[in-house]
Structures are given as structure tokens and as C-alpha cells.
């Protein structure tokens, strides 16, 4: 049941992405992208990952606000349709190659819902007693794997500094 629902939502996501790519209006493209993001958060919820679903929802709302504000304040609403044949054919060939390789890889993957990761079981059985945190996801990202979080925080910090520096009001003398 869950699997069928996830496949249904993934089909809708592919549809939304195609609409976002092919739409002539920039605003409807942005709205289609937002619908794709919200369906992704529903998929995370169905896969019982509420932490990542919350993050996906709030980030999606924020980026949607930013993108809509950016597209509304600009005058460019209509995207020109100038698609040449050669890049399009190259894209199609690459898509077919990728599809063949991905199909081969997916055929060799373990069945849906079976855990093969050995490292997850100690976290699940000892996480509460080791760290005192009832939320295992938090205990992994802020205790067992805190180096990853430090790297992520550094990436975010650097990206924000770069954006603020490029877009600041005063020009550098």
C-alpha cells in the first residue's frame, strides 16, 4: 500500500517536473517546482522519516517565497522556445544510456524495506543510552556523526557569506 502510494507520488513528481520545464510562464514553472517539493515531503513522511519531511516542508516554503518574489518582480515572464536539434538528440541518447545503467543497478538492489546496513543496528539499539537523546536521528547527526554536521555548517556558513558579500549594498572601493 505504502509502496503503491510512493510510486503514485513519484509519477506525479515526474509530471510536475515536466510541466515546470515545458511551461512558457515563469510563475507557473515555479509553482510546479513547489508542488514537486511538497510531494517529496509527503514521500518522506510515508517512508517514516518525519525529521527530513519537516526540513523539506520548511525549506520548500522558503525557497518558494524567494523564487515567487524574484519572478514577480522581474519583467521576463515568457521564455523563448529556441531548441536546437543536436543538443536535444544528445540529451536523448544520454538519457537512454543512463536509463539502461540505472535499470541494471536497481535490479541488483535489495528489496524495498530490507535493511542491509550493518552500521545502523548499533545506533538503534544503543543510541538512547549512549547519548540520552530519544530522537535517534538527532543523536546520529549531533553526536555519532557530528563531524558531518560541522562540515555541513561550514558549507552553509561559507555559502551565506559569499551570497551576502556578492549582493551587498556598498561597492568595494
Amino acid at each position: 500500500m505504502t509502496e503503491a502510494m510512493i510510486f503514485f507520488l513519484m509519477g506525479l513528481m515526474i509530471l510536475g517536473s515536466i510541466i515546470a520545464l515545458e511551461s512558457k510562464d515563469l510563475l507557473s514553472s515555479v509553482i510546479a517546482i513547489g508542488a514537486v517539493g511538497f510531494m517529496l515531503s509527503v514521500i518522506f513522511l510515508l517512508l517514516r522519516a518525519p525529521d527530513i519531511a519537516i526540513v523539506q516542508v520548511v525549506i520548500e516554503i522558503l525557497t518558494l517565497i524567494i523564487l515567487i518574489r524574484v519572478t514577480i518582480s522581474r519583467d521576463i515572464h515568457i521564455i523563448g522556445d529556441t531548441r536546437e536539434f543536436l543538443p536535444f538528440a544528445l540529451n536523448m541518447v544520454l538519457l537512454v544510456i543512463f536509463f539502461i545503467i540505472a535499470a541494471e543497478a536497481i535490479r541488483n538492489m535489495p528489496a524495498f524495506g530490507t535493511g542491509v546496513s550493518k552500521v545502523a543496528f548499533p545506533y538503534l539499539s544503543r543510541g538512547l543510552n549512549d547519548t540520552g537523546s530519544a530522537n535517534i536521528v538527532t543523536s546520529v547527526i549531533l553526536d555519532y556523526r557530528a563531524y558531518d554536521t560541522l562540515g555541513e555548517a561550514t558549507v552553509l556558513f561559507t555559502a551565506l557569506i559569499g551570497a551576502i558579500t556578492i549582493l551587498r549594498r556598498e561597492a568595494k572601493k
Binding site: L62, I65, I66, V70, T131, G132, S133, A134, T138, S139, L142, D143, A146, T149, A153, L156, F157, L160, A163, I164, L167, R168, R169
Partner: peptide
Amino acid sequence: SGGTILIYNIAIALKVMAGLFLVFFVL
């Protein structure tokens, strides 16, 4: 509970709050 996890969470929240607001502001 969780020892330093609470402090890490507060630190990340402060950073993300100010950073995302500043990016939206300058954009």
C-alpha cells in the same frame, strides 16, 4: 537530556535563522 545536543541545536538554529534572513534580505 542529550547533554551537548541541546546546545548544538540552539547554535545551529541561531546560525540558520540569521543566515537565511540575511540572504533573503540582500536578495
